[in-house]
Design a protein around this nucleic acid. Sequence first.
RNA 1: GCCCCCAUCGUCUAGAGGCCUAGGACGCCACCCUUUCAAGGUGGAGAUCACCGGUUCGAAUCCGGUUGGGGGCGCCA
Length: 484
Amino acid sequence: MAPSPTGPLHIGTARTSLYNYLFARHVGGTYVLRIEDTDFARSTAEFERDILDNLHWLGITWDEGPQHAGGEDIGPFAPYRQSLRMNRYAREADRLLQSGAAYHCWCTTEELDAVRREQEAAREAPRYNGRCLRLTDAERAQFEAEGRQPVIRLAVPPEMIRFDDLIRGEVEFDNALLGDFVIVRANGVPLYHFVVVVDDEQMEISHVIRGEDHLSNTPKHIALIRALGYREPVFGHIPLILNSDRSKMSKRKSQTAISDYRAQGYLPEAMVNFLAFLGWSPGTEEELFTLDELASRFEVGEVHKAGAVFDRDRLDYLNGVYIRGLTDAELALRLRPFVPETLDDTTLAGLVPLVKERMVRLTDVAELSGFLSEPDDVVASWWSMDDLLPKGRDAAEVSGALAVARDALAERPDWSAEALETAARAAADALEWKAGDLFRPIRLAVTGKAVSPPLFGSMVLLGRDRSLARLDGALERLRAGAAA
RNA sequence: GCCCCCAUCGUCUAGAGGCCUAGGACGCCACCCUUUCAAGGUGGAGAUCACCGGUUCGAAUCCGGUUGGGGGCGCCA
């Protein structure tokens, strides 16, 4: 897997990493991670850290590569960052120059643009016309004397390129349509197509599994492999993840950074399960798998050819399933970062069973438990008199009923959910109110919301004093409202 | 424009010639359960398998074409 640290770990990169991981683990291979940072202008240490960190978060581990941002590389072919391998690329570029398989090119951007426009007008494939390949020694000397810095281009032989893709089967391209592409910039920094081929050979990469957007780049890589006399790896191009309009998933139209999903409270196991099924299925109706189970079932050959739309609803559903599947203790641990520090562990532990099946994302805990961490006056500001009144009842009625309920609750010697529920139901019976109608104003007063975790459990967590105080506060407002 | 890839419910998919009057899941709707909301249970709507030809006794499945969609064509990766 070879991510480029020019942005945070992207959903598509994460899935490509996952498929590579599953493939390597399934066949007992060696999984290599390489950082492609030849674009010095856009690559940053921060993005590299984000990528490594979030890969780890997903549970994806590699056998060779940088283990941590800034840490030592592990593996026989270190370093695994391209920025640290420049001398190797220079050596191979020289070899290509010596053999005549590559050549210097002094064409300017303007000249190149002109050629391209002509070709497009003539409905031809746009490609470099090979002008600098036919330069005389005098012309070459002239350019050098002018101090112009040339790029290096590969002299691509016009031949049919055929390869057997792991996912797509036999694919054929006509390299005559390719043109002599640039492999080293004028400033001496080598380009992507060139460095991946050099690294893949030197790192003994046997299988290259990457996104379908690289399918049409593969003939370039094969041309380079042949020119350098390298061994050809097996290629596999997995389908793209799509925006809802079926275009390649992009930051513009979708949320693409794994770190964002993580921050929103998605579980890594849900993410992995979801991503794995975006383009692959075990062929059965089972749909919940751990990373290890996926690794034992996954077959690259079964990966689909068509792209898959990223469906947020389905991710949400899966995340809820995984949250419910966690033990209470485990969920409490995962919830910790999403809850105020002032919420103590005992309360958090008590909260978990109340909110567990009401969460889609871990961040939902904030909404569900706000009544615990916010002061009484803030909670009271969440509701209005109108919210408090069940249909067909006025403030005086509700105030009377709430007072009865308040006293019934206050009388209980033990402040447990069972005792409170019994008392509240008895009060409703005595008032000849439907239990639900009486619970509504209590819920509003105590939690500030019409929708909350189970009422009596919430009151236990809040504690007797604060619960009664909120009830009293509501009664006061009710009486004022009734008087007015 | 040139090259390449792809095509089953809105979405993710099962399906590798008869088991398909196309199965599952998400989403949606209804009902049940229920202190709210969820979760759970039951049921329902939803796909002439893009289209047209061909091969075959028989095609979602094989072949060809058409259409549509996507990707690539950079001194980005």
